[in-house]
């Protein structure tokens, strides 16, 4: 099907996210705005205004009732998805780089930047879901500073109170948020900044992408590297396609060095790799800048990519995508 081009941002995309049902797509960008779109036709449902800086990250709960966002104006905000109202604002000394809901929607984890003498901090807030959501506790339920390299990405794992983090040094680690203790780590997961971390539907494994030009699948319990996908360009995002044995990787030459390269295609494409055989199976082009973020529909029927060029492209998969057996008749567990 023809891709749907979402032209609602004036600057580069930072993160995009589907809700649990997959009917809505949230996108945030450096132009301070968060947009929400209908997935099936690309119509814009609305915007969430109020942030005063680059919005780095968004996440939406499983009921599509609340949405959280983190921005460079040093705030973490809780929004009402339906009305677009900002329900609560937490302020920090530095920018918020990553937010994520827990599986039960009762907690939110956020990473704040290491800057101006402030250490990188990971905070967990309890979300009061009763009432209209405006009554929230100002204080975090748990807070700690990861020692060593700063954290760049994180997500809740299937086990309660345990988060998985990706770090600037390329480390991937497991933390107990209650104690702030590092349970396990893999120092050599990547050799450069971990740029994205997305969990599988059942949260038993996760995929990380990195500037070291590779993406890896890790077991979230043991942090063992299960699969490695090595490309020739720095990666900004990696996503897992449910129901099909593929992973989607996106990236491209650094934005600052793009002008020095000739206008050459091939760097700014979404790459489809076979999850098990670690082989590239296809590419989708379209963006004319690096791809910053990729998200796949929870049911695996479409995917979206957001680029440095300020566009979001939503691709609904054709029938052939579901029917083709690239490597013959093999049953691969999701």
């Amino acid at each position: 099907m023809r891709p749907i081009l979402l032209q609602g941002h004036e600057r580069s995309l930072t993160q995009i996210k589907f809700n649990k049902d997959g009917d809505l797509l949230f996108s945030c960008s450096k132009d301070h705005v968060i947009n929400v779109w209908y997935t099936h036709n690309g119509e814009r449902l609305g915007t969430y205004d109020g942030n005063n800086g680059t919005v780095w990250t968004v996440d939406v709960d499983s009921e599509s009732r609340f949405m959280v966002s983190g921005a460079a104006d040093n705030t973490l905000r809780l929004w009402n998805v339906a009305t677009g109202k900002c329900l609560f604002t937490w302020e920090f000394p530095t920018a918020v780089k990553r937010v994520a809901f827990s599986e039960d929607d009762k907690q939110v984890v956020c990473i704040t930047e290491q800057r101006m003498g402030h250490q990188c901090a990971i905070r967990v807030f309890n979300i009061n879901r009763s009432g209209d959501g405006t009554k929230q506790s100002k204080e975090p339920a748990h807070m700690f500073n990861p020692i060593g390299s700063k954290a760049t990405v994180c997500a809740f794992t299937a086990q309660p109170n345990i988060i998985v983090t990706g770090h600037e040094s390329g480390k991937v680690a497991l933390f107990n948020v209650k104690t702030g203790e590092e349970i396990d780590n893999n120092e050599r997961a990547h050799s450069d900044v971990v740029t994205d971390l997305q969990l599988s539907p059942d949260k038993t494994y996760c995929i990380t992408s990195s500037k070291d030009k590779s993406a890896r699948i890790h077991d979230t319990k043991t942090l063992m590297v299960i699969k490695t996908f090595t490309t020739e360009t720095p990666l900004n995002s990696a996503a897992i396609a449910p129901n099909r044995p593929y992973v989607l990787l996106g990236g491209g030459q650094e934005a600052m060095s793009v002008t020095t390269t000739s206008l050459r295609q091939g760097k700014f494409e979404t790459r489809f790799w076979h999850k098990v055989f670690e082989e590239e199976v296809g590419r989708v082009k379209g963006h004319f800048g690096p791809i910053n973020t990729i998200a796949v529909h929870p049911k695996g029927t479409c995917y979206a990519s957001g680029g440095e060029d300020g566009f979001v492209r939503v691709h609904h998969f054709d029938d052939s995508y579901f029917r083709t057996e690239l490597y013959g008749d093999l049953e691969i567990e999701d």
């Binding site: 299937a158 059942d202 949260k203 038993t204 494994y205 077991d219 319990k221 299960i226 999850k275 098990v276 049953e331 691969i332 567990e333 999701d334």
Partner: peptide, 12 residues
């Protein structure tokens, strides 16, 4: 891969 997934699912 399938063996590993089965183990994960069981544990979960």
């Amino acid at each position: 891969w399938n063996a590993w997934r089965a183990r994960c699912k069981r544990e979960r």
